[in-house]
Design a binder for these strands. Structure first.
Length: 562
RNA sequence: UGCCCGAUGGUGUAAUUGGCAACACGUCUGAUUCUGGAUCAGAAGAGUCCAGGUUCGAACCCUGGUCGGGCAACCA
């Protein structure tokens, strides 16, 4: 991308960063952070944020920290930390040695809290949760001042130290910043800085029984890490004055991190909150956080998405402040675009229909040559066996076809990809009238690559040689929900829109023999069908393929229009 | 009846910061094709939420509305 194009296409955050650099704010540094709370798996929305934060520092020459926002020991687990790290690196980003935890700063945070008390800017409140909630006021009415607000500095200090020492029960007292109970911004009405939580923390163990709240911990953590641009989602916009207030209390020089908010990603036909995804997992709607239908990074990975496709997608969706719903078609386009260039083409028959080529000799196997990827000659060629009995997909045959059907039907000819032209001579049915087999003839002059092979026929089919085919299970996935915005109804639970047909397992699929050594996460294009990925739990005894996405299907559109 | 955001083709994002509304996805044509894929060529689709104002000129600035979102967890 040229300098000129840069300027044209830049989003509002890049514009801010460029301005800060040109004005030499914070010495012209760019330092961002990705700050997940380890209480769930990362999803495609986080991927956008990861790409944004790491992308910015790649572009402008800076650093990005990975920081776990682990200030609530009752909700957070080690399992999530591991999955988050794996997802970020899988996407292709490197936080180098900067793996940080908000809990690493507990001591510093505590010291700053004492400082605030000493300056008369924080106080210990003995009110109960209910009382604090009740006296906070409403958006239109100011709150009531706490009876404990004017305690002496000495008493506050003493009580806060005793809170830390574990002398009080959960919920008995909190430390509050003394700001303004009448502020029109609810977050400035003496926000809670510390609460008492006698809970075991994954990292600090039993060292603490008071834990800082997000608003107090986050900005100060940014400050400690010398973050310059603290990017978060829109719902934190009203927190910004508080973010700045806390910083102003402890900052000593000119350096200040700047909070910038952008609109979170929404995807059509799915849900995008950890809470809802957790529900799907816990209530068994899906297999787990990495179910291929989930919009989680691990789910997309298992489904067969590439890191590149997700990064390209993140680039394409843009960054702005207005609410948005991205068409899932854009995500699908991103994988197709990437896999089209990379995925080896193979033959796979999902719903086998046997064909006997009656004029082809018994006991003969030809090794036919076929290109691995017509988009990339360097991927080479391979051999596929051909014989008298083959399988084609059942929906590639119609006994009574409509006019635009270019596939096999009685008396009609069709090309077998990389093989011969065959003609349907006869149909074999069982007693119920189901088609069980097709009798065909082949034209030996039409072998692919042969000099007289140029005869044109309307259609080309994929196929596999019956005696050489290997068996596999193929899982077809569809959108998780039937509604574009399942979480968008006040009077309906999002799970009411769960798509019962979102998973279709096919157990009798026949694949070309070269696939027998495929290992988990190998990706292929099953010619004319779609892109498929070996499931992470696939074994050589039981091969399992997940359909990542179908190919664009013009015929499906034509036939749907009837 | 408070405060803070936002509003540009079906969807998303741009518009050299006041100068002919562009790009991508999607849709539709056609060409091509041993994948009804890919590729190539082309088309339709918004006059920028509304009403005023400033200006030679407004998507952009001002005023007033309308609509949408967020904020009242000892969550993040």
């Amino acid at each position: 991308m040229s300098e000129e194009e840069h300027k044209k296409g830049r989003n509002f955050i890049e514009a801010i960063v460029e301005k800060d650099i040109s004005e030499n704010n914070n010495d012209g540094r760019v330092h961002t952070r990705f700050p997940p709370e380890p209480n769930g798996y990362l999803h495609i929305g986080h991927a956008k944020s990861i790409c944004l934060n790491f992308g910015l520092t790649e572009k402008y020459g800076g650093k990005t920290n990975l920081r776990f926002d682990d200030t609530n020991p009752t909700k957070e687990e080690m399992e999530y930390i591991e999955s988050i790290k794996e997802d970020v690196s899988w996407l292709g980003f490197d936080w180098e040695d900067r793996e940080y935890y908000a809990s690493d700063y507990f001591e510093q945070l505590y010291q700053w809290a004492e400082l605030l008390i000493k300056e008369g800017k924080a106080y210990v409140d003995d009110q109960s949760v209910e009382e604090i909630a009740a006296t906070r006021g409403t958006p239109t009415r100011p709150g009531k001042i706490s009876p404990y607000r004017e305690r002496s500095i000495e008493e506050n200090l003493d009580l806060f130290r005793r809170m830390k020492a574990g002398e009080f029960e959960n919920g008995a007292r909190v430390l509050r910043a003394k700001i303004d109970m009448a502020s029109p911004n609810m977050h400035l009405r003496d926000p809670i800085m510390y609460r008492i939580l006698h809970a075991y923390h994954q990292r600090t163990k039993n060292e603490w029984c008071i834990y800082p709240m997000y608003d107090y911990a986050h900005g100060q953590s940014d400050y400690i890490e010398t973050i310059t641009h603290s990017i978060c989602t829109l719902e934190f916009e009203v927190h910004r004055p508080l973010y700045d207030w806390f910083l102003d209390q402890i900052a000593t020089g000119d350096y200040r991190p700047k909070q910038i908010e952008f609109a979170r990603l929404n995807l059509s036909y799915t849900v995008m909150s950890k809470r809802r995804l957790m529900e799907l997992v816990k209530e068994g709607y899906v297999d787990g956080w990495d179910d291929p239908r989930m919009p989680t990074i691990s789910g997309l990975r298992r489904r067969g998405f590439t890191p590149e496709s997700i990064r390209n997608f993140s680039e394409k969706v843009g960054v702005a402040k207005r609410d948005n719903v991205i068409d899932v078609a854009l995500l699908e386009h991103s994988v197709r675009e990437d896999l089209n260039k990379k995925a080896q083409r193979v033959m796979g028959v999902l719903d086998p229909l046997k064909i006997v080529i009656e004029n082809y000799p018994h006991d003969v196997t030809e090794e036919l040559e076929t290109i691995n990827n017509p988009e990339d000659e360097s991927m080479g060629y391979r051999k596929i066996p051909f014989s008298r009995e083959i399988y084609i997909d059942r929906n590639d045959f119609m006994e009574d076809p409509p006019r635009k059907f270019f596939r096999l039907s009685p008396g009609k000819e069709v090309r077998l990809k990389s093989a011969y032209i065959i003609k349907c001579e006869d149909i074999v049915k069982d007693h119920q009238g189901n088609i069980t087999e097709l009798k065909c003839s082949y034209d030996p002059e039409t072998k692919s690559g042969a000099s007289q092979s140029n005869r044109k026929v309307k259609g080309t089919l994929h196929w596999v040689s019956a005696p050489h085919a290997i068996n596999a299970e193929v899982r077809l996935y569809d959108r998780l929900f039937n509604d574009e915005d399942p979480a968008g109804y006040k009077d309906h639970d999002f799970k009411e829109f769960f798509n019962e047909k979102s998973l279709n397992i096919l157990k009798e699929c026949k694949l070309e023999p070269s696939l027998k050594d495929a290992i988990p996460e190998d990706r292929f294009q099953f010619q004319r069908i779609g892109y498929f990925c070996v499931d992470r739990y696939s074994t050589s005894e039981k091969l399992i393929f997940n359909r990542t996405v179908t190919l664009r299907d013009t015929w499906a559109k034509i036939s749907q229009k009837k």
